[in-house]
Design a protein around this nucleic acid. Structure first.
Lengths: 245, 245
DNA sequence: AAGTGGTCTAGACCACATT
DNA sequence: ATGTGGTCTAGACCACTTT
């Protein structure tokens, strides 16, 4: 007979996995848990909080706690940035690919001193000037990604890349016209829990990690021309990379 | 004057970011927080628990709560599986690459009916037989990854791939000798919080996500010959992908 | 022995959603 | 008006680590 918050949470999770509670279904509330398991309200609350912290449930204050659903966008880095890639089978996860349009919000462009890590990745002197383009991406009016990209100011200062609207084809097209087309990319990524600030900026649900990606774009000669730091809502994304000969 | 657990946690986090508490340093304990912020013990406990849940701190019962350190292994998927790749600059994160040897534990090989998702990815009939190779990877005797790979049984049943030790060069070398060399790979990944079961199997610290990777290996003809499901401790890994022409 | 985090009880108040 | 989750207080006991 489960008595602790951890045990109650595990029991509920097992019942979810068994299909007793499907995606989107309302779980037993705190009063029900107090009754069924014979514990104090704070313990019942703690059990539900554990499920939320594990990303298994979402609480809607005033309404109840519900089993969480996962229908990610599929981000295919290789396909987007490289020439023609095959696109066979879909993801393991039921994805919303293409269905919902992505929009850009809060686009800002400015010139700054390069932070140390940017200078290192861009292979420029510390304190060199960079053009900084930051924006958020929305799906269904919900933020799913924040991106900030850095480009050497002496390369792009007087181009459309330094304007909010870089024109047809985007900044990579403009870079190509400057003779520094990015053709090779590296992405370093990690997953972690968001700070409370990041959590609100991305409107991430509790119990949801973020994926932090640093992408560097190189020309054929190996010159780094852009660094892009992205922060993704891990509850909204699945990532795909394809590689090999 | 912060009074709630959330506010105390944010205050502590700010002081960590300010450098007042460096990596590995002990944070003020529950009694200190009760005194300094004038709250009940459970609230102080809740504040520290929040920091732990955000992956900012680690609690050592009986000793204290400490600022967490992040020194990941760098997993370069592209480099490991593809032919000669450049290796310029290191990661944004201070990585332990190469320093610590990785060992394999709990290696098991068996033959089973293919689960539905495996059958789909391997492009075989549902219920077809597969060879299943599962293992855990350890660094410093700590588990950091679990991996289970599936190969068509009719292809590899009577080869060393169905043995615990596949021999020099590993299973990809054996597949090549069978005339089905994997040359192209796709990885689909997501990040999420672990179940309590996964959490203990990987010995993941609280507040640490896991990264779930599904890799499919294809021959030059486009035949899928292996599916590998990996579960990584996100606190132990940074991932690198390089691509482009 | 003293100090630490972990967690439960019992009761209270709040903000919010639903009816 | 009722029910929901959210959170705090105050006190208690436990297991563990450190001294």
């Amino acid at each position: 007979m489960p008595e602790t918050a951890r045990q109650i949470a595990d029991d509920l999770r097992a019942r979810i996995d068994d299909g007793e509670f499907g995606p989107g279904v309302r779980l037993p509330g705190e009063p029900a848990l107090v009754r069924d398991y014979g514990v104090a309200k704070m313990t019942a609350s703690g059990a539900l909080k554990l499920l939320v912290a594990e990303g298994m449930a979402v609480s809607r204050p005033g309404s109840g706690t519900y089993v969480r659903e996962f229908k990610p966008l599929l981000r295919d880095a290789t396909k987007r940035l490289s020439r023609a890639r095959r696109d066979d089978g879909r993801s393991i996860w039921s994805t919303d690919v293409g269905a919902r349009p992505m929009s850009v919000a809060d686009l800002e462009v400015c010139e700054e001193d390069a932070p140390r890590w940017v200078a290192r990745l861009l292979q420029v002197d510390e304190g060199a000037r960079v053009i900084v383009r930051s924006r958020r991406y929305l799906v269904d009016d919900e933020p799913v990604q924040r991106a900030v990209s850095y480009l050497p100011a002496d390369l792009v200062r007087n181009t459309r890349i330094a304007q909010p609207d870089p024109g047809q084809g985007g900044i990579y097209q403009r870079l190509a016209e400057l003779g520094v087309e990015p053709v090779r990319f590296g992405e370093d990524l990690r997953a972690r829990m968001p700070s409370s600030e990041e959590s609100s900026a991305l409107a991430v649900l509790p119990g949801t990690p973020v994926i932090e990606i640093y992408r560097t774009a190189y020309t054929a000669e190996g010159r780094a021309v852009e660094v892009n730091r992205m922060l993704l809502d891990a509850g909204a994304y699945a990532l795909r990379y394809t590689f090999g000969d």
